[in-house]
Amino acid sequence: MSAGRIKQVLSALGFAAMAFAMVPAAASADDAKPAATEAAYVPKGIPAPAGSVFKTLFSGYQFRSADTRAMQDDDFSNPGMLSVEAATSEWSHVDGEAGKSCASCHADPAKTMHGVGTHYPRWNKVLERPVTLEQQINLCRTNNMKAKPWAFNSENLTNMTTFVRYQSRGLPVAVKVDGPMSVWFDKGKSLYYQRIGQLDMACSNCHEKYYGKHIRADLLSQGQTNDFPTYRLKSQHLVPVEKRFQGCMAKVRAKPYKIFSDNMIALEVYTAWRGNGLPVETPGVRN
């Protein structure tokens, strides 16, 4: 047995940054086309459905470095898969006074949860408002399992959200915004274009007008949510979409909307709609 050779002890963030620095800059002056992250890689988009604000939809995946893309593509190296595995056992874990687990009602998650993750946030007839996937999981826990709801951004809730959405991986996002959802859609749309904070910036200023271009050393994406909850190399754990929105708002020095507030859910509905047609990538890996 010869001595093994170390290929990489991956400090993921440092490694990605190093690779990025070595690649010659390929910034494009062309307004229409996103700049390539490396000389060899051209972001691949899909034609947007009718009525979309974009001509071509790009997943955030397309703007990441080769290392980050490879990390997401291989389930072995994708750190988000650890949470999927953790939630797999939680699925059949009995909790609450009703003596039920998720599996009591939804036996085989690969079948019963197939496609579920594509159409949240979704209209809830009882509450008469849209609910996010996180809220739906907690509604199941409180109403059917008689268990305590999990806190937002807790490991349990984020793991379970990731697990449910993972069952729809590869299916196109299909959020419905007609009927009673249209009020929320319109509200989300006005918030998306509303300048906020000390920097006086709207979501659209970065993610519609300047996607594919550099913001400091990083590339702006279209702000799509098809990969959420996503593993951020920066925070080294899975990040739910509303937490990410709060991050953006804090960066433009605005007061972030509260989690599950009307504004936040309206924004989530509208942003999800902008990505209708993109395949679900959960768990994604991003910077």
Binding site: M1, S2, I6, Q236
Partner: peptide, 29 residues
């Protein structure tokens, strides 16, 4: 391998969460 160490790493605090380590080995038996 068969009780004899052939690879090791002393890891320092700069390594990210969920460390991923990849290495090669030549197989003779």
């Amino acid at each position: 391998f068969n009780g004899k160490q052939f690879f090791g790493a002393n890891i320092q605090p700069s390594v990210s969460a969920n460390p991923y380590i990849e290495f090669d080995a030549k197989i003779d038996a």
